[in-house]
């Protein structure tokens, strides 16, 4: 029983999240700074910005690929949102999402057709999108003057949510259900653990790869567009620093760079851990760089524990003991 619990793909992400929570609560010593709706709201706002990007990147990592372009798409979509203007938010939104899906699908097709490495192709995608954002905005900070829309996406709902975080939660939940209940989730795992075997079994690996990169583009674009609405401004330079947290969240969430592991809910837990760390340390009054140090230490620990050498030694130790 214990073994099967430990082997569950969500066990570790959940343990890390709860562990961080317990440590923060302990450091708080009942002062009520960490255990507050303000901290929860702040955590969920981080989730709103990072969860979709991490989900797209995490799915790409699950099939043993990497999508560097998410940062570029995120930035480009945010700028398109401000450029097309607040007068017609629907058109702007549609344009931003379409750009994301197009960039993602195009990269996927290039990877499949030309048999290229996803790192190289999406690095190209990243630079192209960021460059395009600079050209379109002429390197200015663009205002997004639609107070109504800004209010709508940032207003607190039920104490801890905003429309923005609710949309992110809904999409993650939808993906988690589809991943868990349908053929597609199994195909992703199979493709990530052994692409040759998946091909022989009949999994349409090429189509799956293109779909995942298109979905990753969609997610990044949606996040970027919503962030522009929330901040009421967009600039090509200000929106591109999303890859390190997204990759960190995916790894905390149990996704391995070697592919074939992880679940959407695990990635969500990883993002929540990131948000909790930031909001909690902030609430404790810690200086901002402590956040990076803490995150770095956790990632290092996860990475070391994942390494084959440690696993071998642990197994040897367990066998002896």
């Amino acid at each position: 029983m214990f073994k099967s619990l430990r082997a569950h793909p969500l066990a570790r992400p959940l343990a890390i999240f709860l562990g961080c929570f317990a440590l923060l609560a302990l450091a708080d010593r009942g002062a009520g700074n960490v255990l507050s709706s303000a901290t929860a709201f702040s955590m969920l706002e981080t989730f709103a910005t990072g969860a979709l990007v991490a989900l797209g990147l995490g799915l790409a990592m699950m099939i043993r690929e990497f999508d560097l372009s998410v940062a570029g798409v995120f930035s480009l979509a945010g700028c398109l949102m401000a450029l097309i203007g607040p007068e017609d938010p629907r058109l702007a939104f549609a344009a931003a999402l379409a750009a994301g899906v197009l960039v993602g699908a195009a990269q996927g097709l290039i990877i499949v057709r030309l048999r290229l490495s996803s790192v190289g192709v999406t690095l190209g995608g990243l630079l192209t999108c960021v460059g395009l954002a600079y050209v379109l905005t002429e390197n200015r900070s663009l205002p997004y003057d639609n107070l109504e829309a800004t209010m709508a996406v940032t207003r607190r709902l039920w104490g801890v949510f905003s429309l923005r975080s609710l949309v992110s939660v809904a999409i993650v939940a939808l993906v988690a259900i589809v991943f868990g209940a349908t053929r597609w989730g199994r195909e992703v795992i199979a493709m990530g653990s052994d692409r040759r075997a998946a091909t022989t079994a009949g999994v349409p690996v090429a189509g799956l790869l293109v779909a995942i990169f298109a979905f990753s583009g969609f997610c990044a674009a949606l996040s970027g567009a919503m962030l522009t609405m929330a901040l009421a401004t967009a600039a090509a330079s200000g929106l591109s620093d999303v890859i390190p947290p997204a990759a960190a969240a995916a790894i905390l969430g149990g996704v391995s760079l070697a592919g074939g592991t992880g679940r959407p809910l695990g990635i969500a837990l990883g993002v929540l851990t990131l948000g909790l760390l930031r909001a909690g340390l902030n609430a404790l009054g810690a200086p901002p760089f402590i956040n990076d140090v803490a995150l770095g230490a956790i990632l290092l620990a996860v990475g070391v524990l994942d390494g084959p050498e440690i696993a071998r030694r642990l197994a040897a130790f367990g066998g002896r003991g």
Partner: peptide
């Protein structure tokens, strides 16, 4: 061509052309 982390039933239907979504 089995995916080790998947269950037997998942592996049997993995990649089948007629396998429905659920």
């Amino acid at each position: 061509s089995l995916a080790p982390r998947l269950s037997i039933v998942d592996n049997i239907w993995l990649g089948g052309e007629a396998t429905p979504l659920i």
